[in-house]
């Protein structure tokens, strides 16, 4: 049972490496989730207005991403696309795949929230003579946004956890740092402990933000 004993000197010696990995994981979380939410709003808008052709394409994309493993998508992109001359560095590939993945889920979240709104809301807007654009931007989208927050945060957390998969193509985020350390030093417990602390901090931090956001958005609104 000697392996379970933690060598604290070693633990603290790898802390700077972990901080660098943590930084990259947080950047991935911020960049991929930020872009995916912005794009998802655009895609959900196109779905709402039933724009022909584009609408079918988006549905196919969302279904394809949601029904296949992200790890396979990652390999398809990173190891597959070079076959037709499209190649990018591990980091860029990772950002693209994670963003494309998260966008599909966020689009579905927003679409679901919009579809879940009472039809009367749209009818009221129509009966007041509002044009569809104004109705969507100022009524449908903001009201749907309030109901979509929990699902959206779930996807953000999932995407952040899935960023660990990027270690498999060599993106030097948290998991990569830990596995690299283990390969070098064979000290697995210290590295897994550090990894556990980092991920728990990130996910619990995000969960705390959800709670705060829900409380804030709920003000003057909930029945």
């Amino acid at each position: 049972m000697t392996g379970i004993a933690i060598d604290w000197n070693y633990f603290w010696s790898v802390a700077p490496l972990f901080l660098r990995g943590l930084e990259l994981t947080l950047v991935l979380c911020l960049v991929c989730n930020g872009i995916s939410i912005a794009v998802a709003y655009v895609l959900a808008t196109i779905l709402y207005f039933r724009t022909p052709v584009l609408c079918q394409l988006i549905r196919a994309y969302v279904s394809l991403i949601r029904n296949t493993p992200m790890l396979v998508q990652l390999f398809f992109f990173y190891f597959g696309l070079p076959e037709i001359g499209v190649a990018a560095s591990p980091l860029i590939s990772g950002i693209i795949v994670l963003t494309v993945w998260a966008t599909a889920y966020q689009t579905e979240n927003i679409r679901g929230a919009i579809e879940g709104l009472p039809p009367r809301l749209t009818e009221a807007g129509r009966s007041l003579g509002l044009r569809p654009g104004g109705l969507f931007v100022f009524v449908i989208a903001p009201v749907a946004t309030r109901t979509v927050v929990p699902a959206m945060m779930n996807t953000i957390i999932s995407a952040t956890k899935n960023s660990a998969l990027l270690s498999s193509i060599g993106v030097m985020e948290l998991t990569y740092v830990a596995m690299d350390n283990i390969a070098e030093s064979y000290r697995s417990m210290e590295n897994f402990l550090a990894l556990l602390i980092c991920y728990l901090t990130i996910v619990m931090g995000l969960s705390a933000i959800v709670t705060l956001l829900e409380r804030h958005l709920g003000r003057g609104y909930r029945r």
């Binding site: 009818e123 003579g129 903001p142 309030r146």
Partner: peptide, 20 residues
């Protein structure tokens, strides 16, 4: 229909106010 609806007001059973 849009300009017409401004001349024909409608009130719904469930109010349908904009909640936000």
């Amino acid at each position: 229909w849009r300009p017409l609806r401004r001349r024909i007001g409608m009130v719904f059973q469930d109010f349908a106010l904009f909640p936000h």
